[in-house]
């Protein structure tokens, strides 16, 4: 555990909580892509199956349970509790175009051809593109509420910090995981355009377009 990894995890946690609280407090999920949230729930489910097979640390177990629990709670709020406010007409990204190729890639490029490892690889690849329905939705409507942009910013910062974590681990532990690093770079790049808009616009005007 290094400072980049810890702040990355906390940034990820902040993003998840910000989104959940926003929906809860406003009683609305307008502007939020339910499809991205389904993909994140799928990401956490397939990645954290090792909760059932191995214990790593109390921190690890707690964070995994919180991430999975919050992901399903968010999906529940969007598709059940506040379904009437869900902006389905603008959430039109075809997620099968992500899930199917990513599934194929996980079968072809992995560290070990075993069910758990393939599912872990699938989750890494899928996470790197899971935000696309949300970004697509924003580009379609041309706007996002400020709090939604804070959510996206924290989510992007999390993966960027993980990149620094991997650089740190490479130098000080000789550790590197090519699958995680390549997917992490892709994931971070997808947020770059958004980062630029966030810094130049969100803090200037309270409306993101």
């Amino acid at each position: 555990m290094n400072v980049f990894r810890l702040t990355g995890d906390l940034s990820h946690l902040a993003a998840i909580i910000i989104l959940l609280l926003k929906i809860w407090k406003t009683r609305s999920c307008a502007g939020i892509s339910g499809k991205s949230q389904i993909l994140f729930a799928l990401v956490f489910t397939t990645r954290y199956l090792d909760l059932l097979t191995s214990f790593i640390s109390l921190y690890n177990t707690c964070m995994k349970i919180i991430y999975v629990g919050c992901a399903y709670a968010t999906v529940y709020l969007i598709y059940a509790k506040f379904r009437a406010t869900y902006d389905g007409n603008h959430d039109t990204f075809r997620i099968e175009f992500l899930v199917v190729p990513v599934g194929g890639l996980a079968f072809l490029v992995n560290h070990d051809f075993s069910p758990l490892e393939i599912l872990w690889t699938f989750s890494i690849y899928l996470e790197s593109v899971a935000i696309l329905p949300q970004l697509f939705m924003i580009s379609k409507t041309g706007e996002a509420e400020t709090i939604t942009t804070h959510y996206l910013f924290c989510l992007g910062v999390y993966r960027a910090l993980y990149l620094f974590n991997w650089i740190w681990r490479f130098y000080f532990e000789g550790f590197f995981d090519m699958i995680a690093i390549v997917a992490g770079v892709v994931q971070t790049i997808l947020y770059c355009d958004f980062f630029y808009l966030y810094v130049t616009k969100v803090n200037a005007v309270q409306r993101f377009q």
């Binding site: 090792d50 790593i56 964070m63 560290h111 995680a180």
Partner: peptide, 10 residues
């Protein structure tokens, strides 16, 4: 840091 060992990252 083996490739398919214990995954401590989230």
């Amino acid at each position: 840091g083996d490739e398919q060992g214990v995954k401590d990252e989230l």
